[in-house]
Amino acid sequence: MTSPSAESAERRPQPARGGRPGRGPSMTQVAELAGVSSQTVSRVVNGRTNVDPATRDRVVTAMEDLGYRPNRAARALKSGRFRSLGLMVLDLESYGNTRTANAITLEAARVGYLVTLRPLGVPTIEAVSQAFESLIEGTDGVVLLVEASTLDRARIEFPPGLPAILVDTDQESSYTVVDNDQRLGARLAVEHLLDLGHETVWHLAGAQDSHPADARENQWRETLSRHGRTIPPVIRGDWSAQSGYEAARRIAAEPGVTAVFAANDQMALGLLRGLDEAGRRVPNDISVVGYDDMPESANFIPPLTTVHQSFDRVGVACVTSLVREIEQGVRTERTIIPVELVVRSSTAPPPGFTAATPDQGPPRG
């Protein structure tokens, strides 16, 4: 009896006569097994979209059956591209970085690009330079996902001719920038609380030297100033739930606080717990708005009113812009992704607030 493995070996196309011993299967063999042309196999290998889905599946199956692996170096020499993107990220601990990085890798795979991830660890120009040295060979373009204003001030300079995307930055440069609309998000959060009747809004800010934290704090100030409201002192956190919990002690000790805008949902989570332990009820005594709209925020106690950011759309925009520049030489200057306010149960009018009634005119005589 012939074993299954022997049968598989019999069906597998054999190397052409004169081929070198140990040489892997060729693109021609893949085409023969899939019943397509070599040009079709090439289009599949290079991630082209002009291939029928059923045909693509046959080619991919044939590649898997034969153990075919495209020679990236040879393809790069022929096309001038490696079909590889570099992703430099400060860290993967924050919710936003993780979601954006995930979206970038998924979208890159969809359009036929690999992604090489390079965590920086510290936001310094030296760290960026070292990361470039490790990514420059075999990479067609780079996404820099670093929330550090220190890099903005230093004015990053990438190697000449290397397409690059900057995420979460206010840097004015010759590189493409992709960002959520930080200013709109902060304005929506503050105006929501003012519209509920709160006299002013306190702010639990994010980490220093972070562009999103700076943008949200600046817009918080501008919105209060535009409405003629008192601007309370900023309370500084570090994006963590623990820093929100610690901030709650100071906020709870201020009897006049009725509304807080936290720069992210994780700090808002710690704030909710700290206020509860201090006997300050949310939203009866203090209203709280977060930022990010983490999936868990709908299950906080109470469910959190927050600003929804689409990190998936940011990731897709990064890859779309970078691939367009790599393949067509067309650069997008700046892409701003809109945000929206999601109202839940953590916000309400302040204690004792009575909405103004329309003027009924003088009493009838």
Rank of each mutant, 00 (worst) to 15 (best):
181 D>C: 09
135 L>I: 01
234 V>S: 10
220 W>N: 04
347 T>F: 05
231 I>R: 11
342 V>W: 08
276 D>T: 13
167 V>H: 06
123 P>W: 02
228 G>W: 09
71 N>P: 09
358 P>F: 15
186 A>T: 11
126 E>F: 00
285 D>S: 01
335 T>F: 07
3 S>E: 15
358 P>L: 15
225 S>G: 09
89 V>N: 04
329 G>F: 10
234 V>G: 09
153 R>E: 15
263 A>H: 06
193 L>P: 07
72 R>V: 12
176 T>R: 07
325 E>G: 10
257 V>T: 15
11 R>G: 11
6 A>S: 12
346 S>K: 06
127 A>V: 00
202 W>D: 02
58 R>S: 02
46 N>P: 03
16 A>G: 14
124 T>E: 05
210 S>K: 03
321 S>T: 13
266 Q>Y: 05
132 F>A: 00
171 Q>K: 05
91 D>E: 15
139 T>G: 07
281 R>H: 10
156 I>W: 11
183 R>W: 13
90 L>H: 04
151 L>Y: 10
31 A>T: 02
191 E>T: 15
55 T>V: 15
52 D>Q: 11
338 P>D: 15
107 E>G: 04
362 P>S: 13
176 T>C: 13
124 T>G: 05
180 N>R: 15
143 V>F: 00
165 I>F: 14
89 V>S: 05
257 V>R: 09
291 Y>A: 02
135 L>V: 01
167 V>E: 07
80 G>Q: 14
332 T>C: 01
96 G>R: 11
270 G>W: 09
17 R>S: 12
192 H>D: 08
289 V>D: 02
267 M>W: 06
45 V>D: 10
27 M>H: 03
14 Q>A: 15
281 R>K: 10
296 E>V: 12
241 A>Q: 13
132 F>H: 08
81 R>F: 07
334 R>G: 12
328 Q>Y: 07
305 T>I: 02
